[in-house]
Simulated scan of single mutants.
Amino acid sequence: MTGFREMADDDVDATVQLWRDCGLTRPWNDPYKDISFARDGGCSAILVCETGGRIAATVMVGHDGHRGMLYYVAVAPTFQRQGLGRSAVRAAEAWLGARGVWKVNLLVRAENAAVKGFYESLGYEVNPVLCMARKIQNP
């Protein structure tokens, strides 16, 4: 197992498959579009860890100039419970820290109690804020 590195073009299909295997994709979000958008921005990246020549873990990380965000934290089912999720989060935090970002936010689906517990074990806590959203339809 190696450390985390920025995603390469050859990693895209394997990364999407990992996200699907981990149940992270949704029909209304095109993972290929998400990857392209993250990789094209100067304020975001997708970090991957591979073992045995295959993508074992990922994290999408970015910032808006004020706060960092984590998305698509994924560990292949055969590699779960071995510390890769923790390593993915720490790699993303290091990526943000290197850019002067001092706080990170993330979103967890309300029904995902196991993942909430995972992040709590890493020192994350629920902030008493309301997250509002609106889809912008591009022409």
Rank of each mutant, 00 (worst) to 15 (best):
F4N: 05
S44W: 04
S87R: 11
V104H: 02
L107G: 07
G53C: 06
R67D: 15
P139R: 00
N138R: 15
G68E: 03
V89P: 13
R90F: 11
E50T: 13
Y119K: 01
M60F: 07
L96V: 04
F37R: 15
D21A: 15
D9A: 15
R109Y: 11
Q82W: 04
V16Q: 05
Q17C: 08
V101G: 14
Y32D: 13
F118G: 13
A76P: 00
E120C: 11
V126Y: 06
S36I: 00
W95H: 04
K33Q: 14
G97R: 13
T25E: 08
N138M: 14
T15R: 01
V48N: 08
E120A: 15
G42I: 00
V129A: 07
A114C: 09
V61W: 12
M1P: 10
R5H: 11
E50N: 06
K135V: 10
Q80F: 05
D30Y: 01
T15Y: 05
N127K: 08
A56D: 10
T25C: 06
I55E: 10
R20M: 10
E93N: 05
A110P: 11
E125W: 00
Q82V: 06
L47A: 03
E120P: 15
D11Q: 05
G23M: 04
Q137F: 10
L106H: 02
G100V: 03
